[in-house]
Amino acid sequence: MIHARNLTKVVRNGSIETTVLQNVNLDIEESEYVVILGPSGSGKTSLINTIGLIDKPSSGEMFFMGHEVSRLKERQRSNLRRGGIGFVFQNFGLIDELNVLENIELPLQYLKYSKKNRQEQVQKMLSKFQLTHLKQYYPNQLSALQKQMVAIARAYVINPDVLIADEPTGNLLSADGNKVMDVLSALNEEGLTIVMATHSATEADKGQRVIQLYDGHVITENIKNRL
């Protein structure tokens, strides 16, 4: 589903160049739950942004659903992202001006779903993630856990090919973090491909496969719990 060959990412800041990813190779198959593990500054977010087609590599090849995407322009990558990838962020990424229902509905609107379709899908998500009672609430009225649940529902509502989560528990209490991890596991069990970045080894245990990054290099790749 996602294949990377010799991915390298160099970030320029003025005259200073930093290689944040170096010769990364990986393969992510459908319905996998892959965890990218690494300490702060190891290149997790760079890798996840590249996998999620948010960013492109400086060199190397990258395939997403059979398309070579490493040389694509932002607009082309955006077209692949739309409907194909769901994102969950550490700081939730909810739109403050929209309530829970509207936040979940937003991707469907951008994808021009009919109103009836949107309503059906949003109701399903509200129910699935037990958010129905919060549907009129705005992000600033929600707890951190509730916010992240809404973010997951919003990512999932488009029925994506892959869900990418960047430190999804980073702003949560550990108990709440566990709940989020349980939800992600459940989604994976339903067949959703998940790629998650984390610095927590405990959370990494929830994934089927762990790719460990250090200074932009893949240092280990462990396969666990493969079904």
């Binding site: 955006s78 990424g93 909810l94 739109i95 991707p107 951008y110 488009i158």
Partner: peptide, 15 residues
């Protein structure tokens, strides 16, 4: 940030 998140949930530039 808002624009970034909108882009990632599927907003096109035109939208």
């Amino acid at each position: 940030r808002e624009v970034g998140y909108r882009q990632l949930v599927g907003a096109t530039r035109g939208q």
